[in-house]
Design a protein around this nucleic acid. Structure first.
Lengths: 134, 134
DNA sequence: CTTGACCTTCACATCAATGTGAGTGTTCAA
DNA sequence: TTGAACACTCACATTGATGTGAAGGTCAAG
């Protein structure tokens, strides 16, 4: 498929698909007329990239992770240097930290919403809605 | 305490502490000489901000979350508009999505590392370390 | 064969999060 | 009382992820 279809199927603008390519995250082949040609698995990869970017990882790291995360095929171990392993382990720790932080805050929001909503439902009558202390 | 001490205690550079203030994430008081004055709880808040920023949330969102996440005091419900509640619920969903994405990828990395490390330990002898298919 | 909808590259703009430095005022200790 | 260490504001630079538009090539349908 061409870039327009991939953009539509992933929700990622064309501009960014070209950017990902520039960052060496994806390497579509080219048709004889110079158009980029994407395969079906590019859809999954782009969605994964999107998720990782949205999760706060920079392209530089994603570039290193991608070869390891490609679920759809057998796992390859390309150039498995000790540095690569160390990078992955560091990134694993960072991901765990992020997850912990996000979870903590999500739960705090949940608690907050619980409190607020229960208070609001308790006061069905007219009552000032600002600065209630709980 | 002044900005230097806060910077040291949080690991966040002075420049960013001023930036957080500019973004209305923290509002230190001022001494008579114009110096910013921070309290002990600012340490926690700054660490929280740091975590959220690092987790990929923009200051604009953090600004809305902070009043709800301040654990150290009784929960206030400042201007609890329906829009605010909607924002929080949206953000809660987004956090869950991020958490899910990060978890998936962290686990994938873990799997990958498990595989790689077990393969490597199996081949204690001299063996090419590049492009082994598993 | 032209028109419209694609595609290409190139390049400049923007936004958020940071870095960095200039120029100046304040505090504190030797 | 002077110098080091810290604070202030202002302002420009940079980096990464994006937006946007210009100038032009490709192709299918009318």
């Amino acid at each position: 498929m061409r870039i327009g279809e991939l953009a539509e199927r992933t929700g990622v603008p064309r501009r960014l698909l070209r950017y990902y390519e520039e960052q060496r995250l994806i390497t579509p082949s080219r048709a004889s007329n110079g158009y980029r040609e994407y395969t079906g698995s590019h859809v999954d990869i782009v969605l994964q990239i999107k998720g990782l970017l949205d999760a706060g990882l920079p392209t530089r790291i994603i570039q290193q992770l991608l070869p390891c995360l490609d679920k759809s095929q057998t796992i390859y171990v390309p150039n498995v240097t000790p540095e690569m392993i160390a990078t992955l382990q560091r990134e694993q720790v960072r991901l765990s930290e992020r997850i912990e932080c996000l979870t903590r805050n999500r739960d705090a929001i949940a608690d907050y919403l619980d409190t607020v909503l229960s208070v609001r439902s308790a006061n069905t009558e007219s009552m000032a809605t600002s600065c209630e202390k709980v």
